[in-house]
Write a protein that binds this DNA or RNA. Sequence first.
DNA 1: ACAAAAGTGTTATTTCTACACCCATGC
DNA 2: GCATGGGTGTAGAAATAACACTTTTGT
Lengths: 249, 249
Amino acid sequence: MAELPIETYLPGLSIDCVIFGFHEMELKVLLLNMKNQEEWALPGGFIQKDQDVDIEANRILENRTGLKNIFLQQFHLFGDLTRNKAGHAKKLVETKIISDDLRPWFEQRFLSIGYYALVEYSKVQVPTPDFTSDSCEWCSLNNLPKLIMDHQQIIDRAHQVLKKELNYQPIGLNLLPQQFTMSEIQTLYETVLGKTLDRRNFRRKILSYDILVATNKQRKGGTHRAPMLYEFDEEKYTQAIQEGLKSLF
Amino acid sequence: MAELPIETYLPGLSIDCVIFGFHEMELKVLLLNMKNQEEWALPGGFIQKDQDVDIEANRILENRTGLKNIFLQQFHLFGDLTRNKAGHAKKLVETKIISDDLRPWFEQRFLSIGYYALVEYSKVQVPTPDFTSDSCEWCSLNNLPKLIMDHQQIIDRAHQVLKKELNYQPIGLNLLPQQFTMSEIQTLYETVLGKTLDRRNFRRKILSYDILVATNKQRKGGTHRAPMLYEFDEEKYTQAIQEGLKSLF
DNA sequence: ACAAAAGTGTTATTTCTACACCCATGC
DNA sequence: GCATGGGTGTAGAAATAACACTTTTGT
């Protein structure tokens, strides 16, 4: 059982991160399996009294994934009373996740600040579980296990916001490997949007954003014609995020 | 000097409301003039320990404007360390806004949840100032007075979010009087967007949303042809907010 | 040779933009 | 009768949507 320096944290406030990854044509979310429980939780943490909230969110993300400087965006504060399930703290004590003297801390009402992150699946080596959990795994967004408290709602909302953001920002730089094929990025978009797109129209549109550069390498190995590999032009990509894209999917 | 039931509030958290109104072809924001100070502030308040954050935001809005059931939307949590200006609590004590024993409450670090509201200017009778302020006034968005802490930034962000939301939602039901002319609603859109729109194209587009109904009344009085009055079809309007609009400005 | 995905262009439709003239009203 | 804003339509440009055949590669 870990001790928490709770006196250094802002009381009643937590951060929950919805960490999206993309693998095997599926959107995934990084989840923690609670110790001695069936339930899963979003990686999260508390906010140090003397630190910016955004920086704390980054710290939490880094602790969990080992990644720095990742695209991380605050999207909602969850402040309903009902999100505090009565038995939560009790369960944490019973399952020996926390010691009894931490119980009041976990029993207080919590508001949680939702952040979402886009990370490259393969760069997250062995996700490291925190003291509340004994494993940390990628779960497919459309086949999520049972989640504690309102974490399912938090994920749903993050996904919704992500969809909307596609209209303003390119995604992919953080979700895809360095080099990728046209159909890989198309599948990413289709997955996030939850609908299929026309191959030829997609290519035209994504190229019109002028954020991709074609390498002259190809990916060998499939039992089919070898596709061309693309990379992001990071400068133009960053610029596109700042200025916004003109048109949408 | 008022006493605050601070023990009933969540510590370190506040709500600030950017209340938009529309009058004389300008977007306005409701601001409080701090007692004995030059500076102005957004109407805000604290969150009761046993209440939903959204409900508390509505309560604060109602206290300030007398309006219930208003379009009110959480848009950002402001969590930087720098937003806490050192001298703020001291000033409150010196200007006799708060008693000395409240000083620690106001000296603590505060995070603030930003909400924005759209209200009908004429329905807000005499805005009632709270205990920190001696007047409550509509200020034109593009000519704001000096604001405390980071309230200017909060307003800027709210405006930015509002602009973006125009792409997804109609506005106007809360900002305009019951009946209005085509050019009144056009001016509203132009004001929010900060750009002029073509009269004929605007009419076509707003009518294509199918949320307006033409009354067969006209507004008399101008030294020109009497314009037709429109109303919102509230059912379709609500539906459009939920489903989103197809196209944008 | 065949299965599987990659690459590529054109046409029809829809949406957006730009633009100009006549109409009703009050003074 | 004139100044002021109200009302309306159309044509060109741009964006979007729909659609099919050929190429490469591994087995």
